[in-house]
Design a protein around this nucleic acid. Structure first.
Lengths: 131, 131
DNA sequence: ATATCAATTAGTAATAATTATCAAAAAGGA
DNA sequence: TCCTTTTTGATAATTATTACTAATTGATAT
């Protein structure tokens, strides 16, 4: 993957923001440093960077994808009204109620374990395509 | 909320399916019993029914929303490739590894706690609108 | 430093999913 | 039955994202 100024700055700005921005929110920020950048470049690079594991794509809440420049393991809280995402601090010594109370002012409605993986159909598809 | 045949059948068919269908998948199923139904009616009712808490709207994975007619507490596994969602059995006597192994053939990549709530901004907005 | 060539870009068109609009139809009382 | 409000079907509009293409750029070999 080649290094371009667009790619570098998109990554830099995403890592600096702690807000889990949408593609267009990040576009507005990056545009201040690269006024001629295209929104398509932002989408493309967010996709490539997340494929490379350098950032995380968050597909919870709302219809817009959000992105996280912090790839260290941590939990999120999603606003069911506006789709905003914030980090939730979960240390080993914390009770679940401490987490809920300490959750950045969010009124917590629900919490649960979320699994991500590859379904049997997509596994089968990968095998036949040998990728 | 008035009872219409469209609303009844949408709810019935969603509760019968265990696949967490998208709106258009459910539309195809419902059309067999109500051939003249509009896709907009399906979208509208899924929204109303989930506001009423009679079904759950699942906004994980992929760009299409999925819906669950089973409102009892349970966990999900999301396919990162195709967005398919399946239930995950999590009994109190199960170790996390049992869950992972027993997860309907999914190859589990990630699991973590997911919180949902209302962010401070949306709480404030509710107050001023008095709803 | 220059030539080469695949990767990447800007700009924009196309697509996909969902929501909005509106006149007509149906629901649930009075 | 009549009346009012909700809901519907059909379709237009919107939103978010992806696809396309000619031009540009980055990395490498010369």
């Amino acid at each position: 993957m080649r290094i371009t100024s667009q790619r570098e700055i998109i990554l830099e700005e995403l890592q600096r923001l702690k807000t889990h921005p949408t593609a267009d929110e990040l576009y507005e920020v990056v545009k201040k440093r690269l006024p001629r950048i295209s929104i398509a470049t932002v989408y493309r690079n967010l996709e490539r960077l997340s494929e490379a594991g350098m950032i995380h794509k968050l597909e919870y809440g709302g219809r817009q994808k959000r992105f996280d420049g912090d790839t260290s393991p941590h939990s999120h809280v999603v606003c069911v009204r506006c789709g905003r995402i914030s980090d939730v601090e979960t240390r080993d010594d914390m009770e679940i109620l401490d987490i809920v109370v300490d959750s950045k002012g969010y009124q917590i409605l629900k919490c649960g374990v979320q699994f991500e993986g590859i379904c049997p159909f997509c596994q089968e598809r990968s095998k036949s395509k040998k990728d």
